[in-house]
């Protein structure tokens, strides 16, 4: 059925290392993106001048929305959102791709008798969403770069 094991390198060597920059509010998220880049053995540099590609990241305000009410008209289920804005630029900072908004969303049940348990669940789920968001961001950079060097031989 045409499937083959993924082989091609994530990002060609000549486009590495990558520099990840963010405002101070999103620095922790930027760190998890650097970690995901390293997991995909893409070199990360901490100096913008050295980098051939630059990923600019901004984590947007976390959102929460009530999606259902229980029989006492209390919140029964929440939907949590984590969103980030991603921009890919070249070494000199000229924007190549984006800005694109990536989103993760999860449903969690609200236990009205145990707000501490509910709050602990939402911090576990948000941490997991941020990790998934950084994986999604690195994939997005890979998709962009794959198209990049085709258009500029």
């Amino acid at each position: 059925c045409g499937f083959a094991l993924r082989g091609s390198a994530a990002i060609p060597m000549q486009l590495q290392p990558i520099y990840v920059s963010s405002a101070v509010e999103s620095q922790e998220f930027a760190q998890s993106i650097r970690r995901q880049l390293e997991i995909n053995n893409i070199a990360v540099s901490s100096h913008a001048s050295e980098a051939r590609l630059r990923v600019e990241i901004e984590l947007m305000k976390p959102q929460r929305r009530s999606t259902a009410l229980d029989f006492e008209a209390r919140d029964a289920e929440y939907e949590l959102f984590e969103r980030c804005e991603l921009i890919l630029s070249d070494g000199s900072g000229k924007m190549l791709r984006g800005p694109r908004v990536l989103e993760q969303r999860r449903l969690i049940v609200n236990d009205t008798d145990n707000p501490v348990g509910e709050q602990t669940e939402s911090s576990i789920v948000r941490a997991e969403m941020l990790e998934q968001l950084s994986i999604q961001a690195v994939k997005q950079v890979e998709y962009w770069v794959a198209r990049l060097n085709e258009s500029q031989p």
Partner: peptide, 19 residues
């Protein structure tokens, strides 16, 4: 559309919800 059965194995609701 939201449907979820009660019970801790599904998250801890006291009654089913369908909204």
């Amino acid at each position: 559309y939201t449907f979820r059965r009660a019970g801790n194995q599904f998250g801890g609701l006291d009654q089913d919800i369908k909204q």
